[in-house]
Simulated assay, not measured.
Amino acid sequence: MSQHKVVLLLGSNLGDRKKNLETAIKKLEDSGNQILKISEFLTSEPVEFASSNIFCNIALIIFTDLSPIKLLEQIKSIEAEMGRVNDSKISGGYTDRVIDIDIVTFNWLNFSSERLEIPHRKHIFEREFSKILLKDFI
């Protein structure tokens, strides 16, 4: 199997935010992905929705054997295991969340489906917190 280099962004604004991120990273690793690099934690205001809960964010570079869709399925499973109930793609809007894991790049692939767009253009080009986290990653 070939290894794919993937950049992920993780965020949490409910509960013990740093612990949530650490738990998600462990679950990604336990699921067969190799963690290559982890950014520093960064706090940020919610983007595209109103909330008084501040986010804690982190960026990762991983190696995975999975396809983009299989990785997305794994990520959605981890989010559900950790208690995330609302998916913004399904609900049509953003809400507070225990964990959010986004695929930002996948081997520099350009991919678009109903459920997934790679690269994640909002993180690369629009969101300031993302640009800070990703400056040494992409």
Rank of each mutant, 00 (worst) to 15 (best):
I38D: 00
E79D: 09
I54D: 01
L133P: 00
S77I: 02
I138N: 13
F106N: 13
D30A: 06
W108K: 12
S91Q: 11
C56G: 00
S88R: 13
S2K: 15
F63A: 07
G11D: 10
E81Y: 07
D96K: 07
F129Q: 03
T64P: 15
V104R: 12
L116S: 07
E81L: 09
F55P: 01
K70C: 02
S77G: 12
I138K: 14
A24T: 05
G93Q: 14
A50H: 07
N57A: 09
E81F: 08
I69E: 15
L10V: 03
V6R: 06
H120Y: 04
E117M: 10
I90N: 02
F63Y: 15
K70Y: 08
F106H: 11
P46N: 08
L14T: 02
I35S: 11
I90T: 12
E126C: 08
S88C: 03
F63C: 06
F41C: 01
I101M: 09
G32T: 05
H123F: 11
V98D: 08
I90K: 10
R115V: 01
I101N: 10
E29K: 14
E29P: 00
R17N: 08
N86G: 00
T95N: 14
V98G: 02
S130K: 11
I103D: 12
D100L: 02
D136S: 10
Q34C: 03
G15N: 10
S12W: 12
L10I: 07
T105D: 11
I138V: 14
S51R: 05
L71P: 12
V47H: 08
S44E: 02
L71N: 10
F137S: 05
I61Y: 07
S88D: 13
I75M: 06
V7E: 14
E128C: 00
E126S: 13
I75G: 03
E128A: 13
T43V: 14
T105W: 08
I99R: 10
P46G: 09
I62V: 11
L60M: 08
M82F: 14
S2C: 05
K27E: 15
K18M: 01
L66A: 03
D30G: 01
D136E: 15
P119K: 12
E117G: 01
I75T: 03
A80W: 13
L14K: 11
T43F: 15
S113T: 04
C56I: 02
T43Q: 15
F106P: 12
K76H: 09
N33L: 09
I62G: 08
I132L: 14
F111I: 05
I54K: 15
Y94D: 03
I101K: 05
S39Y: 13
I103Y: 08
E81I: 02
L71G: 12
N33G: 04
I38L: 13
E40D: 15
L116W: 02
D65R: 04
G93F: 14
D102Q: 04
R115Y: 12
Y94H: 11
A59R: 06
P68E: 07
S39E: 15
S52Y: 11
N53E: 14
V7C: 13
R121C: 01
S51E: 08
L66N: 10
F49Q: 11
K135E: 15
I62H: 09
H123V: 00
G93W: 06
N33K: 04
V6A: 04
